[in-house]
């Protein structure tokens, strides 16, 4: 099982790389945006930050790079794709995940802790959480106001594709707990198969005791667990 982190210029790839390499101690390689060969990778992380300065629209320029052109095939073959923050925005731009991002309702960048309710703990990224568990992650974004039309929303909800929702400490999904105006307090979604996850909050920023919060670490550990179980049971879907 091998991780890859895409190093888009302007993105904060080093943070995700550090968590996988130093905190989990699992094999991980940097992937350049020009890379077309993704064989050998099992989970690819699209990190947060401002790829290419995000000048056109968040994630738009990164979505046109060679590595991202290969991501659809990679995901199609069952590879895991994790998009955090800007990575989520890139996945929306490529169409691998449905919907779009708007500027935060406040029109201002926001960086602070939020509470999330885990809405689907059966994905490869969330199996270490309990269904309905309330966790605390930090956000840091100016364009995290998730939008999807009502038809798309119905499908998301029906398929269990909503993975995280902003909530208060008690787990109530209420407008006051919504930091950016996202439809139905959506903070993270996956594709129908569940192997592509995009979320705005930053698990890599709460994965270490010294930073005061380790709740994000379980997201990365979930991937390892899922992989372990998956290979043990020999049900690799696409190989």
């Amino acid at each position: 099982m091998k991780f890859g982190v895409v190093f888009f210029p302007g993105a904060n790839a080093a943070d995700c790389f550090y968590v996988i390499d130093q905190l989990i101690g699992h094999p991980v390689s940097p992937i350049q945006p020009e890379e077309r060969e993704l064989d050998g990778f099992d989970c690819i992380v699209l990190p947060g930050g401002f790829s290419y300065g995000d000048y056109l629209r968040a994630g738009a320029l990164a979505a046109a790079t060679p590595v991202i052109e290969q991501i659809a095939d990679f995901a199609e073959q069952g590879g895991l794709v994790l998009g955090i923050g800007n990575g989520f925005q890139i996945l929306l731009n490529t169409g691998l995940l449905p919907g779009a991002m708007r500027k935060n309702e406040s029109l201002r960048f926001r960086c602070h802790d939020v509470f999330l309710r885990v809405e689907n703990s059966r994905t490869p990224f969330t199996n270490r959480y309990h269904q309905g568990e309330v966790i605390k992650y930090p956000i840091a974004h100016g364009e995290g106001n998730y939008y999807i039309d009502s038809e798309g929303l119905a499908q998301l909800e029906q398929n269990g594709q909503v993975v995280f929702r902003y909530c208060n400490e008690q787990g109530e999904v209420i407008p006051a707990a919504n930091p950016d105006g996202s439809v139905r307090n959506i903070a993270g979604i996956c594709n129908v198969k569940g192997n592509v996850l995009g979320l705005m909050p930053h698990p890599e920023r709460c994965s270490e005791e010294i930073l005061g919060n380790t709740q994000g670490l379980r997201l990365f550990l979930s991937v390892l667990d899922w992989w372990g179980i998956h290979t043990q049971e020999g049900v690799m879907t696409d190989e």
Partner: peptide, 24 residues
Amino acid sequence: YIQYDHQVMLNTIVGPGADAAVLR
């Protein structure tokens, strides 16, 4: 300060709003 990313680089032990900021 919530308009500033004060956590990137994963070193911020004490962020803005304190007597002083602390980084590891």
